[in-house]
């Protein structure tokens, strides 16, 4: 899976769970900035990992600062 596909999956999940348009998502913002509470953030991450097919310990997401970093991180850890 390439980085664009991963970004697309993440955006789609954010849009669905946060009930917002994908065009409203700014990759420089964090999920918190978009208004996601802790349950929303976990939902988005778990659902994205499921669709990508990668299992990562949730603790490893602790230092991720924004959505762009999340895309980079998921891509780095995914099957290429």
């Amino acid at each position: 899976m390439d980085k664009d596909q991963i970004k697309s999956i993440l955006f789609s999940n954010i849009a669905d769970i946060m009930d917002m348009d994908e065009s409203e998502i700014d990759v420089q913002e964090s999920l918190r900035d978009l208004g996601a509470n802790s349950v929303d953030r976990m939902e988005i991450i778990v659902e994205t990992m499921r669709k990508i097919g990668v299992k990562i310990n949730m603790l490893e997401f602790a230092n991720i600062k924004n959505i762009q970093e999340m895309v980079d991180f998921l891509y780095e850890r995914s099957e290429k």
Binding site: V39, M42, E43, V46, M49, R50, K55
Partner: peptide, 9 residues
């Protein structure tokens, strides 16, 4: 067989 992906909610 993939309990890691169960929705947290």
């Amino acid at each position: 067989d993939q309990p890691e992906f169960i929705s947290p909610s």
